[in-house]
C-alpha cells in the first residue's frame, strides 16, 4: 500500500452550513477511507442531504474544510465540474433525464464531459446495464420503467463516470416497498466490489449488513458514530436511542 492509499478518500473538518438564519450543519467532522461504506441515519431535517450536497459542492458551505483524495477543495482553485465527475450521486427522486432513452442517459455525460468516444462508451454502458439487470431496457424511455428500474439506471449512469466515491441520498425512500430490494441488491454488489460509499438511508437491514460504520446525524451534528453493532445494539446517546426506537 502506498501513501495515497492509506490516506482517507474524504476528510471533512468542522463543516458549517446555514440557509439564511437556519443553521443546518454545525461542525461536521468525518473521514471516509477507501472501500469504506458509511451509512448515515437520522431524523428528517437533520442535515443529511445538505451534508452530501456539500461534499460534491452542489451546495456551498460557510465554514470548514473538505479534502478529497488528499486535496483540499477550494472555491477558487478546484474545478467543481471535474470534482463532480469523481463523485457519483444518486438521488431520492432518481432524476433520470426523461427526454433521453436509458442508454443515452448513460452515455451523455461521458461523451460531452469526458469527451470519450462513442463506441467504448457504448460498450461500457451496456456492461453496466447488464450489471444492474436492465440491458433489455436500453432503448426505453425512463417513463416506461418502474421506480426500482429507474433508480438502477440512475446508479448505472453515475457509475459511467468511474467515480471514486458514491453518494446515495435516500435512494429507496421514493420506492414502493416491493421495489426496494432490487435497488439495495445493486448497492450491496457495488459495496462488495470495493466502492467507497456514503449512503443516507432508513433501511436498517442494509446498514447492518453492508455498513462499515454508521453515523447518526441530528440537528446538524454527528451525535454518534460506530460499527452497526455499536449503533444498533448498544446506542450510547439518548437521541440515537429515541430515533432507533421510532424506525426499528
Amino acid at each position: 500500500m502506498n501513501s495515497a492509499d492509506s490516506k482517507p478518500i474524504l476528510r471533512i473538518e468542522n463543516l458549517w452550513k446555514s440557509f439564511g438564519k437556519l443553521q443546518v450543519l454545525k461542525g461536521i467532522n468525518l473521514e471516509v477511507d477507501k472501500a469504506e461504506v458509511i451509512v448515515v441515519i437520522g431524523p428528517s431535517g437533520g442535515g443529511k442531504s445538505t451534508l452530501l450536497r456539500c461534499i460534491n459542492h452542489l451546495e456551498r458551505y460557510d465554514r470548514g474544510k473538505i479534502w478529497f483524495q488528499g486535496e483540499l477543495i477550494d472555491e477558487t482553485s478546484t474545478d467543481m465540474n471535474v470534482l463532480r465527475t469523481k463523485i457519483g450521486m444518486v438521488f431520492q427522486q432518481f432524476n433520470l433525464f426523461p427526454h433521453l432513452r436509458v442508454i443515452d442517459n448513460l452515455i451523455l455525460a461521458p461523451k460531452i464531459v469526458k469527451k470519450l468516444d462513442e463506441k467504448s462508451t457504448m460498450e461500457k454502458a451496456k456492461e453496466l446495464l447488464k450489471r444492474v439487470g436492465l440491458l433489455e431496457k436500453m432503448n426505453e424511455y425512463p417513463s416506461k420503467l418502474s421506480g426500482g428500474q429507474q433508480q438502477r439506471v440512475a446508479i448505472a449512469r453515475a457509475l459511467m463516470m468511474d467515480p471514486i466515491l458514491m453518494l446515495f441520498d435516500e435512494p429507496t425512500s421514493a420506492l414502493d416497498p416491493e421495489l426496494v430490494g432490487e435497488v439495495l441488491d445493486v448497492m450491496k454488489n457495488l459495496a462488495n466490489d470495493g466502492m467507497t460509499m456514503i449512503v443516507v438511508t432508513h433501511e436498517i437491514g442494509f446498514a447492518r449488513e453492508v455498513a462499515d460504520r454508521v453515523v447518526f446525524i441530528d440537528g446538524g451534528i454527528i451525535v454518534e458514530s460506530g460499527t452497526p453493532d455499536e449503533i444498533f445494539k448498544n446506542p450510547k446517546h439518548p437521541r440515537t436511542r429515541e430515533f432507533l426506537r421510532k424506525v426499528l
Binding site: L58, N81, M89, F91, Q93, N95, F97, I112, A154, A158
Partner: peptide, 15 residues
C-alpha cells in the same frame, strides 16, 4: 423543469 434535472446534470460534471 424540476431542479433535480439540473442537479443530476451537475453531479455528472456537466457545466
Amino acid at each position: 423543469i424540476p431542479k433535480g434535472q439540473t442537479e443530476a446534470a451537475k453531479s455528472l460534471g456537466m457545466t
